[in-house]
Design a protein around this nucleic acid. Structure first.
Lengths: 118, 118
DNA sequence: TCGAATATATCCACAACGGATACAACGAGA
DNA sequence: TCTCGTTGTATCCGTTGTGGATATATTCGA
């Protein structure tokens, strides 16, 4: 853990952390996850994706995972990443902020009255 | 409406739109609203705030409101803003995206099981 | 074995941002 | 009424984040 104070989480960084919160993944997989989750309205460009990943790794929020191919035929190009403990905490903090913004948006009437259950 | 295609909404821009969705407000008021809503974890700097406001005005998402002092003694420095129809739509689109991210975060277990009601 | 798709990485120009600075207008008190 | 601290808006500058293009290597299917 190179730093003691929490580094700021950029929008792209949160997308990456959110994807990794569901389990380890490789860059391309993260890209596709984000695109599908947001119906294509958010698309991480390669430049942003890999730069964000390496910055998160330097900051100690993410670390490279050994491999995992149990069902896959193994692809030497792929590099898998997973959250560290600090990464999980940072993602949780940011998620809480997002949740609050969504709540405020609902109060303001920006979200059509819809179920907020899972 | 100077543009036909929707301009991208930056994080700071969404904070401003969200504040204005609750009613017309002036710059300083928006600043304080955002700061209080997020417990100070998000603070719009003057540079970002006023630059964002003028860009939103140019894009036709926000417009200057005449005044409103009914209880206030009237302060000539204040400039009030309100959402346009396009601004409301853009804010609603972005709010929907935020809501989806919050949902994904909850599914991933990032948010401790808590009530998602108001 | 050949070509298309997958996957990672880097470079460059531009946009967004934070912080500093400046300045005008208001309010309270001497 | 004069001064002074606060409120409120505006602009400048250096840094950071981003998108898009490009390059390159590996895998897979025909």
């Amino acid at each position: 853990m190179p730093k003691g104070n929490p580094p700021p989480i950029t929008p792209a960084a949160f997308q990456v952390l959110l994807a990794l919160a569901r389990g380890r993944a490789h860059g391309y997989g993260i890209m596709n996850f984000v695109s599908e989750l947001t119906d294509g309205s958010v698309q991480l460009s390669p430049g942003t994706l890999y730069r964000t990943l390496s910055r998160l790794a330097v900051d100690g929020l993410v670390e490279e995972a050994p491999d995992m191919s149990e069902d896959q035929p193994h692809d030497a190009r792929r590099r898998y990443y997973q959250l560290t403990a600090r990464g999980w905490e940072a993602a949780a903090r940011e998620a809480e902020l997002i949740r609050r913004l969504a709540g405020a948006a609902a109060e303001a009437g920006l979200l059509g009255r819809q179920e907020r259950s899972a």
